[in-house]
Design a binder for these strands. Structure first.
Lengths: 193, 193
DNA sequence: TACCGTTGCCAACAAGCGTTGACCAACACC
DNA sequence: GGTGTTGGTCAACGCTTGTTGGCAACGGTA
């Protein structure tokens, strides 16, 4: 359960309401994107008045910032056999995405909202780049190789969870891992073409 | 220059205005997505009154439908050496995307708008699937393999043209082709894993 | 009991949206 | 030269949005 940045030492009586708002916000942002996820709809989902959202989170951008806190929980690739990093990463991303509407929310918002796009850039920089650094041979190529991985992973998420291309939603977990793992493996470890 | 579905035999005096509207609409949809691209802003860009947009295109959805007409102009892969289809497709998509804001508009809108997503599904079905059919060994695997290609190509477009991850925008055409061509080649022609 | 901060609802605001209809100017045709 | 069609503007409509301030109920503390 994420909360506002400074976790209050004493639990407030309104904590239940606060998390209800965040849960509803995540759901709406994931389903509708930033513009169409209205504060009124979120408040109705949380069974409170829209003005409460403003009081607790300032404005709509503050609500989004509080609702969408992403930790990819990327594994330590130092402990994974070098030939398995592709498979490990693809499997991990699938696990994360399948039961995590925050990621879909962030993807939807990132496409139509500048703040959302910058948030995604930050996640890429702070979470994916360091992991890629553990595996890539040439440090100078780390950003390029990590970005290539991002194109494939985000492309899968886009096609499967947002655009819902029928053949992409029909794939089962094992197929995805089998097809994508060699791609990620090559982007990370193969000699540059 | 696209036009309303039945191309009028006699050119109308208002054709200049109509295409000005469509050009402005494409630009706004590409830059802002569906919700934030307002009819008022599009009309102002085209130097006409918002009501003209309504008269010529009915409503906002009609305007979007008229403005975003996508022809991927995919090459006939029958004439391409089988080992070069990956390279040919990646190069072609890059050519299309670099100077074509329609594709960015469609991608942005497809993420937040149901009609946009269905439009993209239609393009995938009507334009990419037939081409994949020319190359894939097993007809039953065509949708899967084409969808895999879509994940990689759309993922690149998303990361490079919409989210603008710095390392993805820094890539030059040759690098992208060199990295992505083997991926597409494998998704289309390699034995299924 | 009296007090005061917290929690919550209600009503309203200003702005922006898509959309409509009345109205004027320019052109084409008989 | 009148007349109907077309191209275009203006002002307004009904509605939704994010956001604000006032006011009532609650709960712990003194």
């Amino acid at each position: 359960m994420p909360d506002t940045p400074p976790p209050p030492p004493t639990p407030r009586r309104s904590d239940a309401t606060r998390t209800a708002i965040l849960d509803a916000a995540r759901e709406r942002f994931a389903a509708d994107g930033y513009e169409r996820a209205t504060i009124r709809a979120i408040a109705k989902d949380a069974n409170i008045d829209p003005s409460m959202v403003m009081r607790y989170y300032g404005n709509k951008e503050g609500l989004f910032a509080a609702a969408v806190a992403v930790d990819l929980k990327l594994p330590d690739l130092g402990t994974v056999p070098r030939s398995d990093v592709g498979r490990a990463l693809v499997a991990h991303f699938l696990d994360m995405w399948e039961d995590n509407e925050v990621l879909t929310a962030l993807l939807r918002v990132g496409v139509t909202n500048q703040a959302g796009a910058e948030r995604m850039q930050g996640i890429f920089r702070d979470q994916l780049l360091p992991v890629a650094q553990q595996v890539c041979p040439d440090p100078e190529q780390v950003p390029t190789r990590a970005a290539l991985c991002a194109t494939q992973v985000l492309g899968l998420a886009l096609t499967r969870y947002v655009l819902r291309f029928p053949p992409a939603t029909a794939l089962v977990r094992q197929e995805i891992v089998a097809w994508l793992a060699p791609t990620i493996q090559r982007y990370l470890t193969a000699p540059s073409p």
